[in-house]
Design a protein around this nucleic acid. Structure first.
Lengths: 217, 217
DNA sequence: CGGCTCCTTGAGGACAGTCAATCGGGGTGG
DNA sequence: CCACCCCGATTGACTGTCCTCAAGGAGCCG
């Protein structure tokens, strides 16, 4: 069900949220066309052979894992300018899907050169983020989780007052370890209290930053 | 309150649970004495300058983070033979403490040589483990979490029928995002059902592996 | 043997989940 | 351009799992 468009030419990279430089990773693949993934299409699956990395040019990606009965945990979202696809042991332990229409540049593995030096800081940052998210899932209540999530999304889009939520309520729920209904209720409550405005389903404007920060502890 | 014993000579490394070779990391510090950390003593703290790595020779370590009101999430336990201390941005984002009396060999940073190549597989494995733990915290119930935890502890001690739990019930609770009482109740229920035996507070014998595996899904 | 800490067990309550009905908005077709 | 449709989101009522509070028990040290 994956749609690949070799025709699609990349938009400008919107800038990396971190200060880690990734430019050098693309020495060997400059000028390569990006691939377009349609909404919901699979980028890689658990069990597949891993090695390549993926740079998002526009759109967003969810990386997740499933339990046997279908319960899903999204371990991370990735936005424009971010790199994902790191794996251990040469095998993917997770699934990756485009959330909306997403342009991705593939960084092929084994270009000869050893990329450890450039990759290590990126992977370390991913490790810290995952471990910080453990605190959210293990010890925070629903409202605290949503507050932390909104602040993270805002920070990754330049701390603008208003920003996009590329993902559905269901995706947010599966990222925060909650249900759709609980996420929806927390959003509504935040709106009622004047903490946020919700101009549309996929858009948020933060009105009370300090309140949100206090909520996320 | 930290006790460092420069006199202490290391016991044999008990073997790495993974198949990743770490020998080469110690080229520059072979023969260095290990340091003894007393039970509960701090190895490093959040906010401290990072860079060194730590190899456990015996004992166990908890790595955790705190919320403002004292809620604690243990992001990982580390046993004999394992390396920890990876950080991003040169600063520790977590606390590390010895659980019981623990012998640790410090791998000093900046020995000149670039360690990226050896480190990357270790960090990648840590990332996968953290992300897998997200699924446990986000989507599994209490009994499933405990089952997954026991299987993990068993696997890291050679899949022996009977093995040590170096940490307290409180540590287990803070690792699994539960309370002491819930962990205790799940243990008791598993004992009642003949799934495990608990020869002592810090020791477990798994009787029904398949049941545990089915529980952890 | 006493006292301490950690663990266990019980009773009751709260937060989030489940089930179900309704709302709303973006897209399509008339 | 408007009406309809459909999927996602919202809201409400109720349930259940886990947390909180509290008391009692077990192991381990001096």
């Amino acid at each position: 069900m994956t749609i690949h468009s070799r025709e699609f030419r990349s938009a400008a990279i919107l800038g990396t949220p971190s200060d880690i430089r990734i430019d050098s990773l693309f020495d060997g693949c400059a000028g390569q066309p990006a691939t377009l993934f349609a909404a919901g299409s699979e980028i890689y699956a658990q069990g597949e052979k891993a090695g390549d990395l993926y740079l998002i040019e526009f759109g967003a990606v969810r990386v997740y894992r499933l339990l046997a009965d279908g319960r899903r945990q999204i371990s991370s979202f990735h936005l424009a300018g971010e790199v994902f696809g790191f794996e251990a042991g040469g095998t993917h332990h997770f699934f990756a899907e485009a959330i909306g229409a997403t342009g991705i540049r593939v960084i092929r593995a084994g270009h000869g050169a050893d990329r450890s030096r450039e990759l290590l800081p990126l992977v370390l940052q991913g490790l810290v983020k995952a471990q910080e998210h453990l605190l959210v899932l293990g010890r925070q209540q629903a409202a605290e989780r949503v507050a932390a999530f909104l602040l993270d999304m805002a920070a990754r889009q330049g701390d603008l007052e208003e920003f996009d939520l590329p993902m559905s309520r269901g995706d947010v729920a599966d990222y925060l370890g909650l249900t759709i209904e609980t996420v929806s209720r927390v959003f509504s409550r935040m709106k009622d209290k004047g903490i946020v405005r919700l101009p549309s389903l996929r858009r948020v404007r933060i009105l009370k930053w300090d309140t949100l920060r206090a909520m996320s502890e």
